[in-house]
Amino acid sequence: MSPVPAETTSASVRQRSARIATEVLAPWVWVLLLPLAVAWQVTSHHVGETLLWGLITGVFGSILPMAVIIRGAKKGQWDSHHVTNRAARVIPFAACIGFLAIGFGILIVGNAPRELIALAAAELISLVISVAITFGAKFKVSMHAAVAAGAVAVLVQVYNPWAALLLLGVAWVCWSRVELKDHTTAEVSVGTLVGLVGGGGAYLALAAALV
Score class of each variant (00 low, 15 high):
89 R>Q: 03
93 F>H: 07
43 T>C: 11
101 A>T: 12
119 L>T: 01
71 R>Q: 07
103 G>C: 05
100 L>I: 00
37 A>S: 08
63 I>Q: 02
118 A>R: 04
49 E>C: 06
61 G>P: 09
36 L>I: 10
100 L>F: 03
88 A>G: 07
96 C>F: 09
78 W>E: 00
38 V>G: 07
106 I>G: 14
105 G>P: 14
42 V>T: 11
119 L>N: 00
36 L>S: 07
60 F>S: 03
51 L>C: 10
77 Q>N: 12
88 A>V: 07
78 W>Y: 10
41 Q>V: 06
41 Q>H: 04
96 C>I: 12
128 V>S: 08
34 L>M: 14
118 A>L: 04
34 L>V: 15
101 A>W: 10
101 A>V: 13
50 T>A: 15
33 L>G: 12
120 A>V: 00
105 G>V: 04
119 L>S: 01
59 V>A: 09
46 H>L: 10
80 S>K: 02
57 T>P: 01
45 H>E: 10
56 I>E: 00
122 A>N: 02
121 A>P: 01
69 I>F: 08
81 H>V: 06
92 P>E: 00
76 G>I: 15
93 F>Q: 05
111 N>G: 15
47 V>G: 05
39 A>C: 15
123 E>H: 09
53 W>V: 03
73 A>M: 08
82 H>D: 11
84 T>M: 07
67 A>L: 13
55 L>K: 05
78 W>F: 09
72 G>Y: 08
115 E>P: 09
113 P>G: 08
43 T>V: 13
107 L>H: 15
67 A>I: 12
60 F>W: 14
121 A>H: 04
68 V>F: 11
80 S>D: 11
36 L>K: 11
104 F>I: 07
83 V>P: 12
108 I>Y: 13
73 A>W: 05
71 R>A: 12
104 F>W: 15
79 D>P: 02
111 N>A: 08
117 I>H: 01
40 W>N: 06
61 G>F: 00
40 W>D: 02
95 A>K: 06
40 W>V: 10
101 A>S: 12
63 I>V: 13
126 S>A: 11
49 E>A: 10
67 A>G: 15
46 H>S: 11
86 R>P: 03
74 K>L: 10
105 G>H: 10
81 H>Y: 08
114 R>P: 10
41 Q>R: 04
89 R>G: 00
62 S>Q: 03
48 G>M: 12
79 D>S: 05
60 F>A: 02
89 R>F: 03
38 V>A: 15
43 T>P: 11
65 P>H: 02
111 N>R: 14
41 Q>A: 04
